[in-house]
């Protein structure tokens, strides 16, 4: 493998990991506070659709992104209401939301674009950061990415600082590990848990917009194709930590990038095996490499005062 090809591989690994990373960090924060959102998939799809329609209708991808973010708010509020107020089974309600969003976006897509599809949709711009972007070969291939990724990395760094150094971070952690203590301290567990679901929805909306108007500049029916579930797997793989989750996402991104890289190198591996690889890795990850004891104590359990 030449350096040039390797740089391209690295660049596409990061590009493919980006939506998983954005959604995965949001989900990690939510799971730390004890709420599992199987609906990450649906939230991403909702935003992928809404931001594509927004960008297409207004001609401005930035407006599209905003519409994508706003479109997920009702979805995440619905999930938060089901999980926290109605104390519904978080897995079942999440899957229900995914089915609903898949149906609704497909229906709306057909109504707006018709069955022909492939309308030209304006996308978010790529940027090359100074210094890093100026490195020969590697600079353009690896670091020239859609600006949303850099914005997302900024948000992730802030998230890491908030989790580590602020009382809010402590409250989030405690809401998942020891909700009774949070209650006794006078904070509302329900409020914290509503907040984290909305945050997970916000991050998933960035991830969805990245897929449609960031990466391929179009929307296809059901285009998330399990990316939300991979994001959840990356949280488990990463042991509910930011660094671990990030590495897991990069690994899944690299596994996906191999699909395009290996045939270019003349390596003859069945395409289906390569498409399957991230899911296979995720299964191995959740199946063997991490133990249960790492999960937040009350993950998936509704809190009852």
């Amino acid at each position: 493998m030449t350096w040039e090809l390797f740089a391209v591989f690295l660049g596409s690994s990061i590009r493919l990991a980006a939506p998983l990373l954005l959604a995965g960090i949001g989900e990690m924060v939510s799971e730390r506070a004890g709420v599992l959102n199987m609906s990450i998939e649906g939230m991403m799809l909702m935003s992928a659709f809404a931001s594509a329609v927004g960008a297409w209708a207004t001609g401005d991808p930035l407006v599209g992104l905003l519409i994508g973010i706003v479109s997920v708010v009702p979805v995440s509020l619905l999930q938060a209401f089901l999980s926290n107020t109605l104390r519904a089974n978080q897995i079942v309600s999440g899957i229900g939301i995914n089915i609903l969003v898949l149906g609704a976006t497909t229906l709306a897509y057909r109504e707006i674009f018709g069955a022909r599809s492939r309308a030209e949709i304006p996308g978010l711009a790529k940027i090359k950061p100074p210094l890093l972007g100026d490195i020969p070969i590697i600079g353009p291939a690896v670091f020239e990415q859609v600006w949303l990724l850099y914005a997302g990395i900024g948000i992730i760094i802030i998230t890491a600082l908030v989790l580590r150094f602020t009382s809010l971070g402590l409250a989030i952690h405690a809401a998942g590990a020891e909700p009774k203590a949070v209650d006794k301290s006078g904070l509302s567990v329900t409020a914290v848990r509503y907040g984290v679901v909305v945050f997970a929805g916000f991050m998933a909306s960035l991830a969805g917009a990245f897929l449609s108007i960031g990466d391929i500049h179009t929307f296809t029916e059901g285009m998330t194709r399990g990316a939300g579930y991979l994001a959840i797997a990356s949280v488990i793989f990463g042991k509910w930590r930011i660094g671990g989750t990030t590495l897991a996402c990069l690994l899944f991104g690299a596994a996906t990038a191999l699909q395009f890289q290996l045939p270019a190198l003349g390596v003859n591996v069945p395409n289906a095996l390569l498409i399957m690889l991230p899911y296979l890795l995720a299964l191995l990850a959740v199946g063997g490499l991490v133990g249960r004891q790492m999960a937040p104590a009350t993950l998936g359990e509704p809190y009852r005062r």
Partner: peptide
């Protein structure tokens, strides 16, 4: 009428039932 309509209906059924379990 796109068949996705049936998917919407199914999603609503699951969500309603999940919410009504309590």
């Amino acid at each position: 009428v796109p068949t996705a309509l049936v998917v919407v209906i199914q999603g609503l059924i699951v969500i309603t039932l999940a919410g009504a379990a309590l």
